[in-house]
Amino acid sequence: MDWTWFHKFGSPPHVYRLAGTLTPWFAWPAGILIIAALYGGLVLAPPDYQQGDGFRIIYVHAPSAWLSTMVYAVMASAAAVGLIWRMKVAHAVAASCAGVGASFTAASLVTGMLWGEPMWGTWWVWDPRLVAQLVLLFLFLGYIGLRSAIDDLGRADRASAVLAIVGVVNLPIIRYSVEWWNSIHQTPSVMKMDRPSMPMDMLAPLLMMLLGFTLFFVAVLLVRLRAEVLRRERGAAWVKEVVS
């Protein structure tokens, strides 16, 4: 098997240039999808028969929650690759994920509260799903805090990678909390084995939002990755070419 592609992904100048080339290919579709989904979700989708127009919070809540766990999975996988194959670029990917993940986890929690108050009659309950999502926020913040507390970059990479990998146990807890325990939170409507329990004009904007947020994350990750790679490669000869 030809492994040159793998080595190329380990080469900082290659990653820096490739990330720069790819960014607009993710950013523009993300922007278009999110704006179209906004129109579909707020204007075209009919009100829910139980929740009226209140259900439309789903179009910002579900994509934020999806990103929060997806970003964590990417962060932990990159951290594992960095730890196992001592690949510096993988550590740079993991480090670039943390801030994005924390921000969308916070968004999912607050939009969830804004949905919970009118529908459940409470902003917050100590419910398994909600607690697991709060733990996810602390994992992201802990990861960021740990990195900034260690001056040596190599040690910061390794220590934070271990934390990220250990925290993966929280992901299935978030996913299955609504099925394992008697949760106030509803079970999945879209990401389940049988057909989604939603009419198409409600579902289409949601799927577009989910895809739009995912592409948005990739675009932001690519920009942050370039910054991270540049910071790590200060002294390298190729840096001279790309910044002057």
């Binding site: 968004a107 607050v110 939009t111 804004l114 949905w115």
Partner: peptide
């Protein structure tokens, strides 16, 4: 509830 949720997410 809805507009603050949208505002925050954006």
């Amino acid at each position: 509830y809805l507009w603050p949720a949208y505002l925050l997410t954006f």
